[in-house]
Computed example of a mutant assay.
Amino acid sequence: MNAAPPKPVDRQLPSDEARELLVLTRDLVQRELAPRAAADEAAGRFPRDVFRTLGEAGLLSLPYPEAHGGGDQPYEVYLQVLEELAAGWLAVGLGVSVHTLSCHALATFGSDEQRSRWLPGMLGGAQLGAYCLSEPQSGSDAAALRTRAERDGDGYLVNGTKAWITHGGRADFYSAMVRTGEDGPRGISCLLIPGDAANLTAATPEHKMGMNSSPTAQLHFDGVRVDADRLIGEEGQGFQIALSALDSGRLGIAACAIGLAQAALDLAVEYAQTRQQFGRPIADFQGLSFMLADMATQVEAGRSLYLAAARRRDHGLAFSKEAAMAKLFCTDTAMRVTTDAVQVLGGYGYTQDFPAERYMREAKMLQIVEGTNQIQRLVIGRHLTRS
């Protein structure tokens, strides 16, 4: 059976090119992602081939300069592509967001020589990256990281453990924050580490309640040698690089959250229109129609919030507070909307015959990654009260 054509693009977009990009993304989601998402999640299969397909379509490099192999798209457009991918399969949307995050350090803080040397390969579609900040004892307190890189001749020797690494053991490169100096944020630097570096190993992936197609693993650095020319920025600049990356990455998580929430809403609406009780569709009952209305309103509000933050970024304005707000609101929205979707489906929502229960499990993760929502509130509060 031939797949139905993708839905028309009903969005405010800045160009015809952006509209064509959204149509391409919806087509790929319908053909390559949605048909296999449930089975691959149940089996815990990592869809590396899907990322290659997205790379060939140019979807792994959208917000970066064309001169280095990027798509030269504004963040406003990139995030809407990300939302569409996440609506079809969150593990893929999140994976693209993580890859984009892992390229940020080199693209933004690297030298011209470093960018010319490595960025085209990272953006070319064949490689997949990972971002290494968290450790077993330092999650929200990222400045307390312990993984150390000691100078050794014309390079560094890296020892330590990174934790909660998306694509851990599968990535082709890692943007890793390591300690090269004193305790605290001023002693942290950023290294671009090849995925096949000697003495770099990955632990068994974590057993999670959702997102089983997205491997999350610890990385062990046991005397990993890294050439000095793979230092991004200056020694001691790593914490600044990490926070800059996270501001942009939080917008990616917000977009993924709205994609997931939209998928749950679409499922709930379709079910409510076809499920009959007392001789009519359950969508006709006011109590349920009000629930759907609230779900739809929350999704639209979240989309507007992350796009407003993205447009600030595109115009060169400060957006750290707005990124934290978007991440907070959109991921909380995803949790509420997916929970309500389960309720709309009733008993069927609690079974694996429908994806509502998977959406709900996946939404919980989004409230935790790239800064818990409690940390987002802390960030927002500090912006509001600092002099």
Rank of each mutant, 00 (worst) to 15 (best):
L123M: 14
T331Q: 07
I193V: 15
F46M: 04
M325R: 15
V9S: 09
L200R: 04
Q343G: 07
L79W: 05
V29H: 09
I253Y: 13
Y156E: 06
D141T: 06
L62A: 12
A272R: 12
D16Q: 15
Q276M: 14
A176Y: 00
G139W: 07
F46P: 09
N159I: 00
R230L: 10
L265N: 05
S320R: 08
I375A: 07
D227S: 06
E84N: 04
L60T: 10
R313N: 04
E56K: 14
S189E: 08
T147M: 11
L317K: 00
D340F: 05
N199R: 06
T108F: 08
R179K: 00
G129Y: 07
V226D: 01
G316E: 05
A4H: 08
T147H: 07
P281K: 13
A293M: 04
T161S: 00
E32S: 12
R45E: 14
I368E: 00
R312L: 15
L128P: 05
S189N: 12
D353K: 08
F51H: 12
W164D: 02
D40M: 14
A301W: 08
R303D: 11
G349K: 13
W118G: 12
A18W: 04
A296V: 06
R117G: 14
A163Y: 03
Q352E: 12
R386W: 06
P8T: 15
H99M: 11
I193P: 04
G371Y: 06
Y174C: 03
Y306C: 11
G55D: 03
E357D: 12
D16E: 14
V342C: 09
F51R: 13
L219N: 01
E300L: 05
A217T: 03
Y271K: 10
A38D: 15
M122Y: 15
I165Q: 02
L123Q: 13
V344C: 06
S387A: 13
F329T: 14
S289G: 11
Q80H: 02
V81K: 11
M295P: 02
A228K: 01
L24C: 06
V342F: 03
W118Q: 10
L90M: 10
A176D: 01
M295E: 01
M365A: 02
H99V: 08
Y64Q: 09
R382C: 08
S116H: 10
V299P: 02
L246T: 08
G346L: 04
V224Y: 01
G259S: 09
I188F: 10
Q30C: 07
T53H: 08
P8E: 15
L62Y: 05
G169K: 00
G129M: 05
A326I: 15
P8A: 15
C256Q: 09
A268N: 04
E270I: 09
D10P: 02
G184P: 13
L133R: 01
A34W: 02
K7N: 10
I368Y: 05
Y271H: 15
V29T: 05
Q374T: 08
G110L: 12
I258V: 11
A3Q: 01
G249E: 03
R230N: 04
G70V: 03
Y78F: 07
M291N: 11
A149E: 14
S138H: 07
M209T: 14
I165Y: 00
Q273S: 11
D172E: 00
L157T: 07
M325A: 14
R377Q: 10
G316N: 01
